[in-house]
């Protein structure tokens, strides 16, 4: 106990912590500040801490979704608003599908002892290793020529579900294993069918696992760029794709692009603050148990 008290008194230690926090959060704060600046302020040489915050950049980005017409926008480009809706639809639907399907599969694997746990964790690992860049060529080829679902949201959702399933199955099975089997047997005694047991008994117990799994899935579907870029057409583009498309070599409109970046970053940031414990559990479980 004595050394802990000593630690609390060491000012260098606190200085280190402050420095670390500034380093890890600083770039994000800088992006937020830039997104609230006019381009004049961004380009000016003077100190950048004092400026008039403005929402203009956000208005420019979201112009077709606002209930009023912002005065400074001469030409309203609907690309970003549409991309935001696409991103939301794709991320939410693929998360929901992945969770439902993954849950059922994890339950079957745990309760009915098909394959050993080794098979499951090895498959998960192998799938985790596959980089999206590797899927790029075949997915593009198959989606375009065989399934003919390129350029549709359905096509993008299908890849995301497949990409996330192994991890979700694996993390959920580690939660389902902890559900006492007696509980299920009792329910079965009372006349519940297998589906009722699953939906009414098992699912409510593994809620924390579901939370962790859904955050991870949503994050990947929301942030993914490469496959969305290859599969999407003009109408199904997601936010990361529009951001990269609007990056040109010269003359970048930093204010607006930072505002779009901020909008893309907001959902994950909210999740982090709401559910950091589940996220950390999911992350550590992934490494410690392989």
């Amino acid at each position: 106990m004595a050394d802990k008290v000593y630690d609390k008194q060491n000012p260098a230690f606190y200085a280190l912590i402050v420095a670390l926090v500034v380093m890890s959060v600083g770039p994000i704060v800088l992006m937020l500040m830039t997104s609230l600046k006019l381009n004049v302020d961004i380009m000016s040489d003077t100190a950048s801490l004092f400026f008039m915050p403005t929402l203009r950049n956000y208005e420019t980005a979201l112009c077709d979704m606002l209930w009023y017409a912002p005065q400074h926008v001469e030409y309203c480009d609907p690309t970003f608003g549409r991309a935001l809706m696409n991103s939301l639809t794709i991320a939410i639907i693929s998360t929901a599908l992945t969770l439902v399907i993954g849950c059922m599969a994890a339950y079957a694997i745990v309760r009915f002892r098909f394959m050993g746990r080794d098979t499951v964790s090895l498959t998960t690992l192998v799938m985790r290793m596959v980089p999206p860049a590797v899927l790029l060529v075949p997915v593009f080829g198959i989606w375009t020529f065989q399934f003919q679902i390129d350029g549709t949201k359905m096509g993008i959702i299908l890849v995301y579900v497949a990409m996330n399933l192994p991890f979700v199955i694996w993390i959920l099975q580690s939660f389902i294993i902890q559900v006492p089997i007696q509980l299920e047997e009792a329910a079965r005694m009372d006349g519940a069918g297998p589906f009722q047991v699953f939906f009414l008994v098992v699912l409510p117990i593994i809620k924390p696992g579901l939370a962790a799994a859904s955050i991870f899935t949503f994050r990947i579907a929301w942030n993914e760029f490469l496959l969305a870029n290859a599969l999407a057409d003009r109408n199904s583009r997601t936010v990361p794709v529009t951001i990269v498309n609007s990056l040109t070599e010269y003359d970048i409109d930093w204010g607006v692009i930072m505002a779009t970046g901020m909008l893309l970053a907001v959902p994950p940031i909210i999740f982090t603050f709401v559910a950091s414990r589940q996220i950390i559990t999911g992350m550590t479980a992934g490494a410690v148990k392989g």
Binding site: S24, V25, I28, N223, V244, G261, F273, S276, I280
Partner: peptide, 17 residues
């Protein structure tokens, strides 16, 4: 919580900032 923020936001956004 603050430390995991950089991992959670999109790599595209990280590149951007």
């Amino acid at each position: 919580t603050l430390f995991i923020l950089p991992m959670m936001i999109a790599p595209i956004v990280v590149g951007l900032m």
